[in-house]
Computed example of a mutant assay.
Amino acid sequence: PVVDYAPAPAGFPADPHPYDTTGLTEGLTPTRRIAAYDAPGGRPLALLAPTISGVPLTMPVAQRRPGWTAVLLPSANRRIAWLPDEGWRTVALRDQIVVERSRHRLTWYRHGRAINSWPVSLGMPGQSTPLGRTFILGRTAPPEAVYGGVDIFALGAIPDDPDAVPTGLRGAHIGLHSWHNDDTLGRNVTNGCIRLTRSAQRTLLAEVSPGTPLVVVDALPTPPPTA
C-alpha cells in the first residue's frame, strides 16, 4: 500500500525519541515511490510517494544508519520509517514548533532560537492532542467560516483514538489552525487540533514550510524566553 491521508499501515517501529525537542534540521522528499521499511534491511511495509493528496511530501529526518535513513512517518503517531539511500532528496529545515499541553502554549523556533510564543486551545478529554513528534504535512483552505478565514496546516499526526472524534471528522488529521474567536484559548475544547489566534496562524503560514517538525510535550523543563 501507498501511505496516504488514511492511517498508515501497522508494523512501523516506534519513534525512539518521541518527546525530544532538539530541532530536526533536515527533511526528506521522495522523488519517486520508495519502499518504507520497519528496520534497516528489514521488511518493506508500504510505499511513500512524492505527494499525499496532491501535496508535496517532506518528512523530517529522525535517524541515520549506514545506507539507511529514518523519517517521521506521516498518517501515524510516534512512528518512524526506514528508507534506503535512494529515490529521495533532502532539504534544510530551519524552523520547529513546540506545543506544551499543560501550559497551553505554542512556541515557534528558528535555528534553535525562540521567535514567538502564543496561547493555544487543545484537545478535550478523550480527544487529547497527541503527544510526540510530528510535522507540518501541508496547508489547505478553511472548509468552514468557523476557522476564521485563515488557511489550515494539516499535520502528520492523526487522532490517538479515531473512534472518539465526531463522525464528520473521521479520517481527518490533527490540524494547526485558527478559529472565528479567541474565547477558548488556554482550554481543552478541540477535537485534538491545535487552535491559535488568527494573527499567529497568519504568521506561521507566512514563515514556516511543510516538513517543519512539531513536537507536543507536557511541558518544557524551562519556559522559552518568549513565554
Rank of each mutant, 00 (worst) to 15 (best):
L176T: 01
E207G: 08
R103Q: 14
P119R: 11
A219K: 11
Q201I: 00
S102A: 14
T222M: 04
P40Y: 13
A8D: 00
P7T: 04
R198W: 00
M59G: 04
T197E: 04
I34F: 03
A76D: 14
I152C: 01
P210G: 10
P142H: 07
R133S: 04
I174Y: 10
I115Y: 02
R32Q: 13
G211I: 08
G156C: 08
L214D: 03
L185S: 01
S178T: 07
P162S: 09
V217A: 07
E86W: 09
P13T: 08
R195W: 05
G27P: 04
L122Q: 01
D95K: 06
I97C: 06
G148L: 06
T134L: 05
S121W: 00
V215K: 03
I80M: 03
V98E: 10
G42F: 07
A114F: 03
V120L: 00
Y37E: 07
V217L: 02
A227R: 08
V71R: 00
F153C: 02
T107A: 06
I174V: 15
S53K: 11
Y109C: 08
I136K: 06
D4A: 11
I80S: 07
G138K: 09
A36K: 04
E86D: 15
T25A: 00
T69Q: 12
V99A: 06
G211H: 06
N188A: 11
P13F: 08
G41R: 07
D151G: 12
G156A: 05
G27I: 02
D38P: 04
Y37I: 05
I152A: 01
L45S: 09
S199F: 00
I115P: 08
T129K: 02
